[in-house]
Protein backbone atom coordinates (compact mmCIF):
# COMPACT_ATOMS: atom_id res chain seq x y z
CA UNK A 1 0.00 0.00 0.00
CA UNK A 2 1.11 3.54 -0.66
CA UNK A 3 0.57 4.41 2.97
CA UNK A 4 3.44 5.65 5.10
CA UNK A 5 4.23 3.33 7.92
CA UNK A 6 6.27 4.75 10.76
CA UNK A 7 8.59 2.79 12.96
CA UNK A 8 7.05 1.52 16.13
CA UNK A 9 8.34 3.04 19.34
CA UNK A 10 11.08 0.99 20.95
CA UNK A 11 8.92 0.17 23.95
CA UNK A 12 6.44 -1.66 21.75
CA UNK A 13 9.08 -3.94 20.33
CA UNK A 14 8.70 -7.60 21.09
CA UNK A 15 11.62 -9.85 21.61
CA UNK A 16 12.15 -11.50 18.22
CA UNK A 17 11.61 -15.24 18.26
CA UNK A 18 12.91 -17.94 15.95
CA UNK A 19 9.56 -18.18 14.27
CA UNK A 20 9.03 -14.50 13.47
CA UNK A 21 9.24 -14.05 9.73
CA UNK A 22 7.90 -10.62 8.87
CA UNK A 23 8.74 -7.96 11.37
CA UNK A 24 10.17 -7.87 14.81
CA UNK A 25 7.08 -6.15 16.17
CA UNK A 26 4.02 -7.84 17.62
CA UNK A 27 1.63 -6.70 14.89
CA UNK A 28 1.73 -4.92 11.58
CA UNK A 29 2.02 -1.12 11.35
CA UNK A 30 -1.05 1.03 10.81
CA UNK A 31 -1.69 4.17 8.76
CA UNK A 32 -0.91 7.48 10.48
CA UNK A 33 -3.04 9.83 8.37
CA UNK A 34 -6.38 10.26 10.17
CA UNK A 35 -8.60 9.54 7.16
CA UNK A 36 -6.57 6.51 6.14
CA UNK A 37 -6.68 5.22 9.69
CA UNK A 38 -10.50 5.49 9.72
CA UNK A 39 -10.58 3.76 6.34
CA UNK A 40 -8.31 1.06 7.76
CA UNK A 41 -10.60 0.52 10.75
CA UNK A 42 -13.70 0.68 8.56
CA UNK A 43 -12.30 -2.08 6.37
CA UNK A 44 -11.89 -4.35 9.35
CA UNK A 45 -15.13 -3.49 11.12
CA UNK A 46 -17.27 -3.75 7.96
CA UNK A 47 -15.37 -6.91 7.04
CA UNK A 48 -16.21 -8.59 10.34
CA UNK A 49 -19.85 -7.54 10.02
CA UNK A 50 -19.86 -8.86 6.45
CA UNK A 51 -18.67 -12.22 7.78
CA UNK A 52 -22.09 -12.48 9.39
CA UNK A 53 -24.18 -10.81 6.70
CA UNK A 54 -22.52 -12.08 3.50
CA UNK A 55 -22.00 -15.62 4.76
CA UNK A 56 -25.61 -15.84 5.99
CA UNK A 57 -26.66 -14.58 2.57
CA UNK A 58 -24.54 -17.26 0.88
CA UNK A 59 -25.92 -20.07 3.02
CA UNK A 60 -29.55 -18.99 2.69
CA UNK A 61 -29.56 -18.03 -1.00
CA UNK A 62 -26.99 -20.41 -2.48
CA UNK A 63 -26.94 -23.51 -0.27
CA UNK A 64 -30.35 -23.90 1.40
CA UNK A 65 -32.04 -22.33 -1.63
CA UNK A 66 -30.49 -21.89 -5.06
CA UNK A 67 -31.14 -20.14 -8.33
CA UNK A 68 -33.54 -22.93 -9.37
CA UNK A 69 -36.08 -21.74 -6.81
CA UNK A 70 -35.32 -18.02 -6.75
CA UNK A 71 -37.84 -16.02 -8.73
CA UNK A 72 -40.15 -13.05 -8.26
CA UNK A 73 -42.45 -14.88 -5.83
CA UNK A 74 -39.51 -16.03 -3.78
CA UNK A 75 -38.27 -12.45 -3.40
CA UNK A 76 -41.80 -11.21 -2.73
CA UNK A 77 -42.22 -13.62 0.17
CA UNK A 78 -38.76 -12.80 1.45
CA UNK A 79 -39.37 -9.06 1.40
CA UNK A 80 -42.75 -9.45 3.06
CA UNK A 81 -40.64 -9.62 6.21
CA UNK A 82 -39.17 -6.33 7.43
CA UNK A 83 -36.33 -8.33 9.01
CA UNK A 84 -35.07 -9.62 5.65
CA UNK A 85 -35.45 -6.16 4.16
CA UNK A 86 -33.34 -4.66 6.92
CA UNK A 87 -30.86 -7.50 6.50
CA UNK A 88 -30.59 -6.91 2.75
CA UNK A 89 -30.31 -3.16 3.20
CA UNK A 90 -27.45 -3.56 5.68
CA UNK A 91 -25.76 -6.13 3.45
CA UNK A 92 -26.05 -3.79 0.46
CA UNK A 93 -24.63 -0.87 2.40
CA UNK A 94 -21.77 -2.83 3.98
CA UNK A 95 -20.79 -4.71 0.83
CA UNK A 96 -20.82 -1.62 -1.41
CA UNK A 97 -18.95 0.65 1.00
CA UNK A 98 -16.41 -2.10 1.79
CA UNK A 99 -15.90 -2.70 -1.93
CA UNK A 100 -15.72 1.02 -2.72
CA UNK A 101 -13.10 1.46 -0.02
CA UNK A 102 -11.20 -1.39 -1.66
CA UNK A 103 -11.29 0.20 -5.10
CA UNK A 104 -10.24 3.51 -3.55
CA UNK A 105 -7.17 1.74 -2.17
CA UNK A 106 -6.48 0.20 -5.58
CA UNK A 107 -6.71 3.60 -7.28
CA UNK A 108 -4.25 5.13 -4.83
CA UNK A 109 -1.93 2.15 -5.30
CA UNK A 110 -1.96 1.89 -9.08
CA UNK A 111 -2.93 5.30 -10.49
CA UNK A 112 0.01 7.65 -10.13
CA UNK A 113 -1.07 10.68 -12.18
CA UNK A 114 -3.02 13.24 -10.16
CA UNK A 115 -5.53 13.96 -12.93
CA UNK A 116 -6.41 10.31 -13.51
CA UNK A 117 -6.67 9.79 -9.78
CA UNK A 118 -9.20 12.58 -9.40
CA UNK A 119 -11.10 11.25 -12.40
CA UNK A 120 -11.13 7.66 -11.15
CA UNK A 121 -12.10 8.62 -7.61
CA UNK A 122 -14.93 10.79 -8.98
CA UNK A 123 -16.24 7.95 -11.15
CA UNK A 124 -15.97 5.62 -8.16
CA UNK A 125 -18.07 7.86 -5.91
CA UNK A 126 -20.69 8.53 -8.60
CA UNK A 127 -21.07 4.86 -9.54
CA UNK A 128 -21.01 3.75 -5.90
CA UNK A 129 -23.64 6.22 -4.75
CA UNK A 130 -25.80 5.45 -7.80
CA UNK A 131 -25.84 1.70 -7.07
CA UNK A 132 -26.37 2.32 -3.37
CA UNK A 133 -29.39 4.48 -4.21
CA UNK A 134 -31.05 2.17 -6.74
CA UNK A 135 -30.39 -0.85 -4.51
CA UNK A 136 -31.83 0.87 -1.46
CA UNK A 137 -34.77 2.17 -3.50
CA UNK A 138 -35.94 -1.26 -4.61
CA UNK A 139 -35.51 -2.78 -1.14
CA UNK A 140 -37.35 0.05 0.61
CA UNK A 141 -40.13 0.82 -1.88
CA UNK A 142 -40.97 -2.72 -3.03
CA UNK A 143 -44.60 -3.48 -2.26
CA UNK A 144 -45.17 -7.23 -1.84
CA UNK A 145 -48.97 -6.79 -1.85
CA UNK A 146 -49.34 -5.04 -5.19
CA UNK A 147 -50.53 -7.07 -8.16
CA UNK A 148 -47.75 -7.36 -10.72
CA UNK A 149 -47.54 -5.13 -13.76
CA UNK A 150 -49.50 -6.26 -16.82
CA UNK A 151 -47.45 -8.52 -19.06
CA UNK A 152 -45.51 -6.91 -21.89
Amino acid sequence: MAIQTPERPKTALKEPTKRSRWTRTGARPRPTNAFELYSWYFFRVSGILLLVFALTHLVVMHLINNVEVINYDFVRQRWASPLWRTFDLLLLFLALTHGMNGVRTLIYDYVQSKGWRVFNISVLYIVGIFFLLIGAQVIITFNPNLPSLPAK
Binding site: D73, F131, I134, G135, Q137, F142, S148
Partner: peptide, 12 residues
Protein backbone atom coordinates in the same frame (compact mmCIF):
# COMPACT_ATOMS: atom_id res chain seq x y z
CA UNK B 1 -27.92 -4.79 -7.65
CA UNK B 2 -29.01 -4.21 -11.25
CA UNK B 3 -30.80 -7.56 -11.56
CA UNK B 4 -32.51 -7.11 -8.19
CA UNK B 5 -33.68 -3.70 -9.34
CA UNK B 6 -35.88 -5.56 -11.85
CA UNK B 7 -37.87 -7.02 -8.92
CA UNK B 8 -39.33 -3.54 -8.52
CA UNK B 9 -40.55 -3.60 -12.13
CA UNK B 10 -42.49 -6.86 -11.77
CA UNK B 11 -42.25 -10.61 -12.30
CA UNK B 12 -42.13 -10.46 -16.12
Amino acid sequence: VADTYLVGLGPE
